[in-house]
Structures are given as structure tokens and as C-alpha cells.
Design a protein around this nucleic acid. Structure first.
Lengths: 148, 148
DNA sequence: CGACTCGGTTGCGCTTTGCAACTGAGTCGC
DNA sequence: GCGACTCAGTTGCAAAGCGCAACCGAGTCG
């Protein structure tokens, strides 16, 4: 895997250069769930320790996780989401929703709810002008500066 | 890579078993952009032909793409998104948005617009009860059947 | 008939992954 | 103060996956 996103004209490719391997997104999913320590990631995911070590280092280098000292004697560190890492939550939600829709039998394994009212949440693409949800068939893409 | 999503209590893991390798999401991104033929994928992505062949076969097996005959003499096939594949668009949009936010200098390389009015679109998590967008800090998750 | 196109497959070396064993700093029980 | 234990890793090695290049097969074009 390359070390950093190159000059790419595609943000999807740039993103995948950082979290587009078999483990990184699962590590981040665990971090969202409240898993923070090396041994906890390792036990929960069943990932090899050397790979976990490598992936955590990568994610810290790219400022997606931060390594935080949580104990002094002995010195021990844990891994917590940065703002940049937390900003991946829509991506994880999207992937979860797709799995829910196409693979979960008998309802999704996990439901996201609004902490204020307990309502199950929905994720959608919406148009601020028309003030409505937009289905994929009505989405076009455009390169800025290029008229279509 | 395993062949099919196992019985997992996590839809993210289930999803990643299908599209969680280095190339699949890039292939699908291209498919959304209108790339459909083997040689076009190969040229656009720079992927090795044997891997492209393997990934396309996998995606067809999992009903994310379908193999469509587009010519009879000689018989040739192309690859098009199924409904299931098209339903990955929110995930690709989320990943794109993250790359835009954290890696694009001078604005995102690509903007999504509403085909009716040309307005740039936004993706958000919203609460149908409160009728408002919900920020990640106000999202809780819950396992169905488990009271929290 | 030979060159070309498209959609692959095959073979081979190199990198990445996965497993297991080991390390090192420090704590706990006795 | 000695052995067992915890946590966070590192190291070594075999196996799997990846990337490149060469080749194949069906059909078209000149």
C-alpha cells in the first residue's frame, strides 16, 4: 500500500489509499464502538498482531487515530479517533446500511438511533434547493470549472 | 478473500467481505461513471488483467454487477451495475466526501449535483421524527431486541 | 492472408498477509 | 525477590495474493 494519497483527481481513490485495505475500516468500526486498546482490537477482530500494529501506525500517521497514553506505570497507549477519523462515520454508516439491506436476514444487526428521541435514523442525499431527498438516478456529477 | 459473507453480527464486515479489497470499489466507481467494458476498466485503473477478470467475476457472482452481451459477432460482454450495485452509491459518495474534505486542495475534484436544478447535493443522517439533520455526536447504535 | 481488437488466461517473481514464538516493562501474589 | 501474569508490541517464516508480461481465441478489416 502506498504511504500517502497521491495527486489523484478522485477523492474516492485518495480515501481508499488510506483506509482501503482489508482491516482498516474494521479497526475504525471498532473504534467507533468504543474499542481502543491494542489487545481489545486484536481479540475482537482476530487480526494478526503485526498487521494490527502496522495498521494502527498507519492510521496514526494519517491522523485518523491518535495514540493516547492512558497509564503511566507501565506506560501504555490506546488509540482514539481524531476529528478526521470520526468524520468517516458517514462512510461506515453507508457500508453498514448496504450490508443491512442485502445481507441481513430478519432485520439489521444494528440500528442507529437519535439520542434525543430514540427514532431510527436514515441516511440520504438531499438537495438544499428543492428541500427533498434525491435518489441515485437524479444525481449527476460535475468537475468544478468544467461545464457539462 | 472469503467467497461470501459469513454469518456476521456486523453488516460492515459483511459488506467488506464483498467489496473490501483494493480494487472492487474503484471498479464500481468507474461503473457509476459510465465505464462498462473490460478494456476500459483496465486502461482507466491500470489494474492487472487477471485481477480485473477475477474481481469482475466476483462482483457478478455477488450480483453487484451483471455481465451483459453487447455485441454478437464476435460475442462480447460488458459489466453493468445491478440494483444492488447501484445501491452502493451512498457508500461511494461518503468516501468521496471524506477525501474531498481532508485531501482535496482548492475544492473537491468532483461535485454531485441535482439533475433537476443543478444544486450541489449534500449527504446527511437525518431523523424522521425531529425532521432535522443529526450530527455524529447525537447518533447512538442499538442492537434490535437489546434494550440500552 | 496477415494485422488488429477485445476479452480474457497462464506462468512467474515479488510483496503482503497470517501464524507462532519471543521480548520487554511493569504488576501481583506469596 | 521470584515466578506467573498483563499488555503492547517485534521478529521469522510459510502461504496467499498481487503485478507484470506473454500468450490465446474468436472474429473483423484491408
Amino acid at each position: 500500500m502506498p504511504d500517502a494519497p497521491q495527486e489523484l483527481d478522485c477523492s474516492i481513490a485518495a480515501t481508499l489509499e488510506i483506509i482501503g485495505d482489508r482491516w482498516s475500516l474494521l479497526i475504525l468500526r471498532d473504534a467507533f464502538r468504543g474499542v481502543h486498546r491494542f489487545s481489545a482490537f486484536q481479540e475482537d477482530l482476530g487480526i494478526a498482531k503485526n498487521l494490527l500494529s502496522d495498521r494502527l501506525r498507519r492510521l496514526v500517521e494519517h491522523d485518523v487515530l491518535e495514540r493516547v497514553r492512558y497509564q503511566d506505570r507501565p506506560v501504555r497507549y490506546e488509540y482514539r479517533l481524531t476529528a478526521k477519523g470520526a468524520d468517516l462515520s458517514p462512510a461506515l454508516i453507508s457500508l453498514m446500511r448496504w450490508g443491512d439491506r442485502w445481507y441481513a436476514e430478519g432485520g439489521p444487526p444494528t440500528v442507529l438511533i437519535h439520542d434525543h428521541c430514540g427514532t431510527p435514523l436514515i441516511q440520504e442525499v438531499s438537495c438544499p434547493t428543492c428541500d427533498e431527498a434525491v435518489s441515485p438516478r437524479h444525481i449527476r456529477s460535475r468537475k468544478p470549472g468544467v461545464d457539462v
